[in-house]
Design a protein around this nucleic acid. Structure first.
Lengths: 138, 138
DNA sequence: TCTTTGTTCTATAAGTAATAGAGCAGCACA
DNA sequence: TGTGCTGCTCTATTACTTATAGAACAAAGA
């Protein structure tokens, strides 16, 4: 797991770390049981304070993606996530999705273009997107 | 335009105002030329400080969605947005989309489910989503 | 003239982000 | 037993953000 962050970005460092880990879990690059570097190790690698990494890991634990303990270190927990998402997640997430898509439409992207962007992003993660739920396979 | 905000939310008030306006522009509820209440008026209606509204309007102006002047007040500018989005927007937006979709996949939503959520959100805005670009119309 | 508008300035209080240092308990390995 | 690494916690500081507030100005309208 190679993790790169942008120190000059507006997005907080701990948020960037969280986002990269979430994306790596989604792609499968970080599967269940995958070890992450220790907070101090990752902090040293990125040239930042270990408290910042701590905050990111703590966030990921709250989201149920990471298990932390002294024995095993930081380990990805994606088995439970193969089940349904936690209560309230889908509602809160849908609201954020709505805002993000609205932004693109308001800026002039057309509906099919936005959906194509979603599809493109999704294929990086899920692989097969056009399944039997709603889709019309090619 | 009825604008509601949640004072107990983690999301900053000025951001909520911006998000609601962006969504209203996307749905067409706020078309080109639609007037928005003055900063002081909206602040009074929402029970907040007018500087907070000012910040939201300023953000919307920077994004090219609003035109502000003493003559006309705050007016929606969506004609320019019927054209292509500003340079760099699509890249930055796609990165945020990727992170948001990854979040859902990591939490256990499957690919078709996520795409269906995108489609649902989009139909509120664009209406016809399955056009001739990438799509397979029903 | 009076009011309303956008705009700008300073200021304050509370919270967040990132830094830093110190320390403790659990575990592994030699 | 000792050393080292781990997660975890505590305090502290600096800088920035959020939201508040008050004041003032010029342009426009009634």
């Amino acid at each position: 797991m190679i993790l790169t962050i942008d120190l000059s970005s507006q997005i907080p460092i701990y948020q960037q770390i969280r986002d990269r880990v979430v994306e790596a879990v989604a792609t499968g690059e970080l599967a269940q049981g995958s070890p992450l570097p220790s907070t101090r190790q990752l902090a040293a690698d990125l040239g930042i304070n270990f408290h910042t990494v701590n905050k990111a890991y703590d966030l990921l634990r709250q989201e149920g993606l990471l298990v932390l303990n002294r024995k095993t270190g930081a380990v990805v927990q994606r088995d439970a996530r193969t089940g349904p998402p936690p209560a309230g997640f889908t509602e809160e997430w849908s609201a954020r999705l709505r805002t993000l898509l609205a932004e693109a439409v308001a800026q002039g992207l057309d509906g099919p273009g936005v959906l194509a962007a979603c599809r493109t992003a999704l294929t990086t993660f899920a692989g097969d997107v056009d399944a039997t739920e709603q889709g019309e396979p090619a």
